[in-house]
C-alpha cells in the first residue's frame, strides 16, 4: 500500500510516496513553503513521479510549519516527531539528530526504536536557522546552495556573532568593508550557526551517532563547522532533506497497520 508524507516547511515543501512503510517510491522537493503553491506542486510532482493518482494513496500525514493547512492529510504530526522517525529509517544508529530548518533549529534525542526522547528548539529568534543563512548569503551576494562549497575554501574564518541576525548582518557588512576574504566570511557565518546549534545539542545531550536532517544538512560548510564544534563526526544521508516527509509517510503507514488495513 502507498502512503504519502508531506513536509510543508517555511521555505520548501517536500513530499514522499512510500510503499508499505519500507520503500521510497518517489520524492519531490519544491523551494516554496507554507502559504504558497509549493505544497500543491510538491504533491502533484510526487504523484506524477510515482506514476500513481490520489486514489492510490492509502493514507497521508502532513508535517512541518504548514502542517495544519493540508486538507488531504488524515492527520498532522509535528516535524520533530517526523524527523526522528525519518532519520531512524535512513540512519538506524543515529541517536542525536540536528535539524536546521528555515525558521527554527532543533536537536532531537532519539531512542533505539526511533522514538523521540527529548528535544530542544531555538526560541523566537532567527539566529542559528536557515533564515539566518539566507540573509547572510544575500549580503555576500552568493547563492545559498553555493555557501557550503565557498566556505570550504576558507583559510582564516572570521568571527561572527551568534546571538542576533540583525547584528550579525552588520558584522558581515563590516567584514566585507574590511576586505576580508568572502570564503573566510562564509566559514565564519557557518561557525556562528554551528556554535548556536551546538549549544542546544549539549543541552539535550550529545549521544552518538549524530546525524543531520533537513535541507541545511546538504551544506558541507555547516556540517564541517558543526563537526568541529561538537568534536564528533556527523552522518548525513543523501535523503536528509526528505527525512520529515519520510517520517510522515511512515506514520501514515503505521496508522493504517494499527487500523488493521495494512
Amino acid at each position: 500500500m502507498y502512503t504519502l508524507g508531506i513536509d510543508i516547511g517555511s521555505t520548501s515543501s517536500d513530499a514522499v510516496v512510500m510503499r508499505d512503510g519500507r520503500d521510497i517510491i518517489a520524492a519531490s522537493v519544491v523551494s516554496l513553503g507554507a502559504g504558497t503553491i509549493g505544497p500543491q506542486l510538491a504533491y502533484e510532482k510526487v504523484l506524477k513521479e510515482a506514476k500513481i493518482t490520489a486514489e492510490d494513496i492509502g493514507g497521508a500525514v502532513a508535517t512541518g510549519y504548514g502542517r495544519k493547512t493540508c486538507d488531504y492529510a488524515a492527520k498532522d504530526l509535528s516535524e520533530l516527531t517526523c524527523h526522528a522517525k525519518g532519520i531512524h529509517f535512513l540512519i538506524p544508529t543515529a541517536r542525536t539528530v540536528i535539524d536546521i530548518g528555515g525558521q527554527d533549529a532543533k536537536v532531537l534525542q532519539i531512542g533505539a526504536q526511533g522514538q523521540l526522547m527529548n528535544f530542544a528548539m531555538n526560541d523566537k529568534c532567527a539566529a542559528g536557522t536557515g533564515r539566518f543563512l539566507e540573509v547572510m548569503a544575500k549580503v555576500l551576494n552568493v547563492k545559498i546552495e553555493d555557501m557550503g562549497s565557498l566556505s570550504m575554501k576558507a583559510k582564516e574564518p572570521v568571527s561572527i556573532s551568534n546571538t542576533c541576525t540583525v547584528f550579525a548582518e552588520s558584522e558581515v557588512i563590516s567584514q566585507l568593508s574590511s576586505k576580508k576574504d568572502i570564503a573566510d566570511i562564509a566559514a565564519g557565518i557557518h561557525r556562528s550557526v554551528a556554535k548556536r546549534v551546538a549549544g542546544m545539542a549539549m543541552r539535550v545531550g550529545k549521544q552518538p551517532d549524530v546525524a543531520m536532517s533537513g535541507g541545511v544538512a546538504l551544506n558541507a560548510g555547516i556540517v564541517k563547522a558543526l563537526e568541529e564544534e561538537l568534536n564528533t563526526s556527523i552522518l548525513v544521508h543523501p535523503y536528509c532533506q526528505l527525512a520529515g516527509a519520510i517520517g510522515a509517510a511512515m506514520a501514515a503507514w503505521e496508522d493504517i497497520r494499527e487500523e488493521g488495513k495494512g
Binding site: Y65, L77, S78, E79, L80, T81, D104, Q115, L116, M117, N118, F119, M121, D123, K124
Partner: peptide, 27 residues
C-alpha cells in the same frame, strides 16, 4: 517526560509553542 516551554505572557504567535506542545503530546 519534561517539556520546557517559554512563557512571556504576551499575546502573539503561538506556532512555536504549538509545535513544542504537539511534539510533547506525541512523545
Amino acid at each position: 517526560q519534561v517539556l520546557q516551554l517559554d512563557i512571556d505572557q504576551q499575546k502573539g504567535s503561538f506556532e512555536q509553542a504549538r509545535t513544542r506542545i504537539q511534539t510533547f503530546a506525541e512523545m
